[in-house]
């Protein structure tokens, strides 16, 4: 089983559009949207949301005013300032640690399991897809990311598919770390801007920290060729392969508006050729299609 995770550090560099394009090229694939906070891949892949499941994680503390004697112990114990002076718990601040629940002398604090989102197993025109939606202002995004990846893996095993294509979240924090554990490789979509370079450097450090091989694809490369050179230099110094460059072209937006991949929108465009080349480079460099994964 192979899994390629698409990351970028910085948001808006083209992760999702490129993932959608790859989904149409990949064989024997399960697609996985690990950006559970602001998932967008479904806008192009149009999954059928066939199987909907609640995602339960963590607990939410609620004080029962009937039992509460207002002793103030919970206020003193809470390190997250979630217990208000009127003996109500601010659910947004509550970390779900349960310390107030366990140590309340009156057992006046309820701690029911929290439904913090939904996850789905769907069919798309390119194959099965596992995706999710985290509830607004919910915690546990990392747990939901791990969950959809586990489900994608189980689905791939069941359907005897050997490749998982995962669209990752932006940043380098909890959900990103949850999206890369055990992955075969990371593809960083970088853009030739000072922030694009800065942010890809942090993702590269993260990949090294967790010992997951990384590659880089430079999107909008001709927007700023000097910055593109800087990315290439950095990649070389960090021993990260540059697997291709994609031209700056609003065609990505035009195809997005029609809910199409760039190939479906215009198969012969320069951008389509670029993306196809990137895909071929990934497959050949990293032997994603054989059982050998050492030499990435």
């Amino acid at each position: 089983m192979k899994e390629l995770v698409i990351l970028s550090g910085k948001g808006g560099t083209g992760k999702t559009s490129i993932t959608a394009a790859f989904a149409s090229l990949a064989d024997n694939m399960v697609c996985c949207d690990a950006d559970v906070d602001a998932a967008d891949l479904h806008l192009i892949l149009k999954p059928d949301f066939k199987k909907v499941h609640d995602f339960k994680a963590g607990h939410r503390a609620i004080i029962d005013p009937e039992k509460c004697t207002q002793c103030g112990q919970c206020i003193d114990l809470c390190r997250f300032d979630a217990v208000k002076d009127i003996f109500e718990i601010d659910s947004i601040e509550c970390e779900g640690c349960g310390v107030c629940v366990d140590l309340c002398l009156e057992k006046a604090i309820d701690f029911s399991e929290n439904i913090c989102g939904q996850w789905y197993i769907s069919s798309t025109r390119f194959g099965p897809m596992v995706h999710a939606r985290l509830g607004i202002a919910q915690e546990n995004s990392g747990k939901l990311v791990s969950h959809v990846r586990q489900k994608a893996k189980a689905l791939a095993e069941k359907k005897k598919l050997n490749f998982i294509l995962t669209d990752g979240p932006p940043g380098i924090g909890c959900p990103v770390i949850a999206s890369i554990g055990q992955a075969t490789a990371i593809l960083i979509i970088a853009e030739p801007t000072v922030s694009g370079l800065h942010d890809m450097e942090r993702v590269a450090q993260l990949s090294r920290h967790f010992n997951i091989p990384a590659m880089v694809c430079i999107n909008k490369y001709d927007l700023n060729v000097d910055q593109t050179t800087n990315i290439e230099k950095f990649a070389e110094s960090a021993n990260i392969a540059v697997v291709g460059k994609i031209a700056f072209d609003p065609i990505f937006t035009q195809s997005m508006i029609q809910a199409k991949t760039i190939f479906e929108y215009d198969n012969n465009s320069q951008v389509s050729k670029n993306v196809r080349q990137v895909w071929e480079n990934i497959l050949s460099r990293n032997k994603f299609n054989t059982s050998f994964i050492g030499e990435i």
């Binding site: 602001a38 919910q138 995004s141 940043g171 959900p175």
Partner: peptide, 10 residues
């Protein structure tokens, strides 16, 4: 602010 809708954004 950071992107997203979960705890960091809040």
């Amino acid at each position: 602010a950071p992107p997203g809708t979960s705890c960091p954004v809040i």
